[in-house]
Simulated assay, not measured.
Amino acid sequence: MGRLADIMTQCHGIDIDEAQERLLMDDLHAIMKVNETMNLTRILSEEGGIVLHLEDSLTGLPFVEDAPEGAYADLGTGGGFPGMPMCVMTGRQTLLVDSVQKKVRALEGVASQLGLGDKVDVYAGRIEDLGRERAGEFSVLTARALSALGSLMELASPLLKRGGRLVCYKAQPSEEELSCALGIQDMVGLTLKERRDFSLSDGSTRCIFVFEKTGKPRVKLPRRVGLAQKDPLRPR
């Protein structure tokens, strides 16, 4: 058992087999190699990458596995975390979404290099535009350190099918952020199903929120590009 598998088993009760761990580490090394010429991640050491990319990503695995079968997208994927690890662990058809075209092209190359080219697609554009193009097509979405919870809920709602899940990775959100998110649930057609607070193996604290698409939004979504962040929905 390698270091990553040991961490996931001992700290999170998640089992990773030898082949999965090898593929996950190959992904991390490939991203670190790309990062030498392109800014994909601020984490430059293997040890930091194991904890702050792979371990952090995989803490959401039980929630992604618990979502209905079907397509998966990682919103604001950056260096492909948690999207690529989720693809490795679940085998779901995966879409990596980022507005920076050179990033997603690099990730496309990494996926091909890892033998995941048939499972991983990329989308270079804004989430709002994807919501118009592929409305209601996704069973599960992830968003890691991307935006405020309320903004993520608004962006995710048009993409999710009924019963689909949004898995949000956060540090510790403020009470104001959480209150705002809970206050717009009916407005965007999402319902908080689970919250999990935990620590990574380095002691840093994390929080995962899981929302389910339970109804139609009461406002027309998606709104114009950028409004979810610049003028977020507020509880009425």
Score class of each variant (00 low, 15 high):
1 M>I: 08
3 R>V: 10
6 D>I: 00
7 I>R: 11
7 I>C: 04
7 I>M: 10
10 Q>L: 12
12 H>A: 13
14 I>E: 14
15 D>W: 07
16 I>H: 15
17 D>I: 03
17 D>V: 00
18 E>K: 10
19 A>M: 10
19 A>D: 14
23 L>A: 14
25 M>Q: 01
26 D>E: 15
28 L>H: 09
29 H>S: 11
33 K>M: 12
34 V>I: 15
35 N>E: 00
37 T>Y: 01
38 M>F: 04
39 N>S: 07
41 T>M: 00
41 T>N: 03
42 R>N: 14
46 E>H: 06
47 E>A: 13
48 G>N: 07
49 G>S: 08
49 G>W: 02
50 I>W: 05
51 V>G: 09
53 H>I: 07
53 H>K: 02
54 L>M: 10
56 D>N: 00
59 T>K: 03
60 G>C: 08
63 F>R: 02
63 F>Q: 12
64 V>H: 05
65 E>R: 15
66 D>C: 03
69 E>M: 08
71 A>M: 15
75 L>I: 15
75 L>N: 04
75 L>K: 08
78 G>N: 10
79 G>V: 06
79 G>P: 02
79 G>N: 10
84 M>F: 08
85 P>K: 04
87 C>M: 15
91 G>I: 05
95 L>H: 06
95 L>Q: 10
96 L>H: 09
97 V>T: 07
101 Q>C: 12
101 Q>F: 14
103 K>Y: 06
105 R>P: 00
106 A>W: 11
108 E>I: 02
109 G>P: 04
109 G>T: 13
114 L>H: 11
114 L>D: 05
114 L>Y: 07
115 G>I: 11
116 L>P: 05
119 K>F: 10
120 V>M: 07
122 V>H: 10
124 A>N: 05
124 A>Q: 08
125 G>V: 09
126 R>E: 05
128 E>V: 06
129 D>W: 01
129 D>F: 02
130 L>A: 01
133 E>Y: 02
134 R>H: 08
139 S>P: 03
139 S>G: 15
140 V>L: 10
142 T>F: 07
142 T>I: 04
143 A>T: 03
143 A>F: 01
143 A>S: 12
149 L>D: 08
150 G>T: 09
152 L>R: 01
153 M>T: 00
155 L>M: 15
156 A>R: 02
157 S>L: 05
159 L>V: 05
162 R>L: 13
163 G>A: 13
164 G>K: 01
165 R>C: 11
168 C>G: 05
168 C>L: 07
168 C>P: 00
168 C>I: 13
169 Y>S: 04
170 K>V: 00
178 L>H: 05
178 L>N: 00
179 S>H: 02
180 C>S: 14
180 C>L: 15
182 L>Q: 13
186 D>R: 12
190 L>K: 06
190 L>Y: 06
191 T>P: 02
192 L>K: 03
193 K>H: 01
193 K>T: 04
194 E>H: 15
198 F>P: 11
201 S>R: 09
202 D>T: 06
202 D>S: 13
203 G>D: 13
203 G>C: 06
205 T>H: 13
206 R>A: 14
212 E>M: 05
214 T>L: 00
215 G>K: 12
217 P>K: 12
217 P>L: 09
218 R>W: 07
228 A>N: 03
229 Q>L: 01
235 P>G: 03
